[in-house]
Amino acid sequence: MPHPDPDSSSAPLSGERDLRLAPLYSPARVRELLTRHGLRPTKSLGQNFLIDGNILRAIAKAGGAAPGVPVLEIGPGLGVLTREIATRGAQVTALEKDERLRPVLDETLDGLDVQIVWGDALDFDYAALPPGTRVIANLPYYITGLLLSRFMRAPGIVSATVLVQKEVGQRLAAQPGGDNYGFLSAIAALYGTVRHVRDVPKGAFLPAPDVTSSVIRLDFDRTRAAPEPEFLTFVETALHHRRKTLRNNLRLAGLAGEAIDGALAACGLRPDVRAEDVPLGNLRDMAVKLGVVR
């Protein structure tokens, strides 16, 4: 980071110079950066900046940031988490939509191995990422589900360690029959495994969000065949109204009642079984019996 000329009329006071030497995650430093660059966090972009060094280190460690590891970050913001990842030797690609942050990131990431791609994360080609890529990110809450589904489908991504709303983390880790089980739980299980790392209180962010967050790590098993699009659609249909019976959900999708009844009986499932209670293996058998997949 360049230092101001002490002889310049615009040189900061000694207190300000000291503040710029504070850890990037310190609340005072974050406020100073925002003020100096004339910025305010944008709620519509999900901008809540981490200000807890212990949590930053825990995320980077859990995500596997290490020398030479390709890491993808979504929404670097002020570069707080980005810097923690990059200083561990990882090769970081960061996707950022907010062009106002260019001068901030030029300053905070100076000299680090970070490539910033400016644009919408929903427009990025995740399939082009190199094999062994690990996602480590504080995800914007409003597009969490969309991004996770794209990570799952990208063959080069082997894991995603992400900060999400606690409720989303509970859904990701839920098992059939659990209160939080649904389509997100099912597709996470289809692609790999989910581990809850830790919860993160509201006070670890500036500004504080309205909800508690969780750090979740998803590991994707790329030795498995990717689930067919038809099966994913079938699972989504089956769990669309997860409190309803599986039969009713499939009937709402236009499948014939007699065929559904026959498939349920052949799979050893009760006619009134609820969708959320059906293991993925049984859903697969149902899809085969109904001719959705082979």
Rank of each mutant, 00 (worst) to 15 (best):
F151Q: 06
M152Y: 14
M152F: 15
R153N: 11
I157W: 12
V158W: 03
V158D: 06
A160D: 08
V162N: 03
V162Q: 06
E167Y: 02
E167T: 08
V168T: 11
G169R: 02
G169V: 07
G169E: 10
Q170S: 10
R171S: 01
G177N: 10
G177I: 11
G178V: 14
G178L: 05
N180P: 00
N180E: 15
Y181G: 14
L184R: 06
L184A: 01
A186F: 03
I187H: 01
I187A: 00
A188W: 02
H196D: 12
H196M: 13
K202C: 07
G203Y: 01
D210S: 13
V215G: 00
L218K: 00
D221C: 10
R222G: 09
T223K: 13
T223I: 08
R224A: 11
R224F: 04
R224D: 03
A225C: 11
E228Q: 13
E228A: 13
P229T: 02
P229K: 00
E230K: 14
E230M: 10
A238Y: 11
A238M: 12
H240F: 15
H241K: 08
R243S: 09
K244H: 14
T245I: 13
T245K: 08
L246A: 12
R247L: 15
N249S: 13
L250D: 03
G254Q: 08
L255G: 01
A256K: 15
E258R: 08
A259P: 01
A259Q: 13
A259G: 09
L264D: 06
A265L: 14
